[in-house]
Amino acid sequence: MATLKEMSRKEEILTGGHRLCAGCGASIVARQVLSATQNPVVVALATGCLEVSTTIYPHTAWRSSYIHNAFENVAATLSGVETAFRALKKRGKLEGDFDFIAFGGDGGTYDIGLQSLSGAMERGHDLLYVCYDNGAYMNTGIQRSSATPSGADTTTSPAGRVIPGKRENRKELTDIIAAHNIPYVAQAAPSNWKDMTRKAQKALESDGSTFLNTLAVCPRGWRTAEEKGIEITKLAVDTCFWPLFEVENGKWKLNYKPKEKLPLVEWLKVQGRFKHLFQKGNEEMLEKMQEYVDQRWQKILRLCGEE
């Protein structure tokens, strides 16, 4: 495992000068994951923030090969690339190895791209799929997705006079992908960079399909200060909203247990998208959200044999 110093000296695959917002978590996730690569890389992107902001023709921010196809099909697209690699290598037209990495936001992964992702995982292509989950369709202007936490105020689940933001709980995609019985599935956060890069490396070294679900702050959508992103991500981890765990060949393992599990409100109160929940009358909503996180955390502990 490379040290931080070594990684910092590695040439960046995603260069600076791209047009993502200041404080965007997606580029931090991408850079941490890519710092773990050891072969030439083909990056594939689902339509989304990371895609539109890094390849505005005639420019590209990618030093590696890169393909974007459409919104819902990055997994299928990269499965074609990976298959072509095997076909051409078998026929002696290519040598060496590649790392194949797909990036998709939560919209492109949890929602519209779920079928394509599930298909690619089931077929076992040797690729890593990284979801940067910022909890809404941020690229189109903060619409709710199935990854949006309950209670969040988004432009399609607005906090109104009658409805206090998103009413449904989020989908636990990491568990769904773990049910595909692929070699490696993990949940990570850029606040815990060492854990993130270790997981990316482990995923890339595994034979077959691997999946990394990462929490990516969106200062616009979360309504948070640009410079506070990593601190806020750390709160998501310490409140157990975003547990860090891995499932290696079917075995669940907890990677981080907060010394003191913080109340969920510590994470909620720093974000504008949850501001309305602190108004009088919404106490029940906050309780329900805490209850959901607690149940989820208990389930993770149980699955990881930590009880």
Binding site: I67, A76, G80, V81, T83, A84
Partner: peptide, 10 residues
């Protein structure tokens, strides 16, 4: 989609 990925890979 996979055909596109494969074709773009030569």
């Amino acid at each position: 989609s996979a055909s596109i990925g494969a074709s773009a890979s030569g």
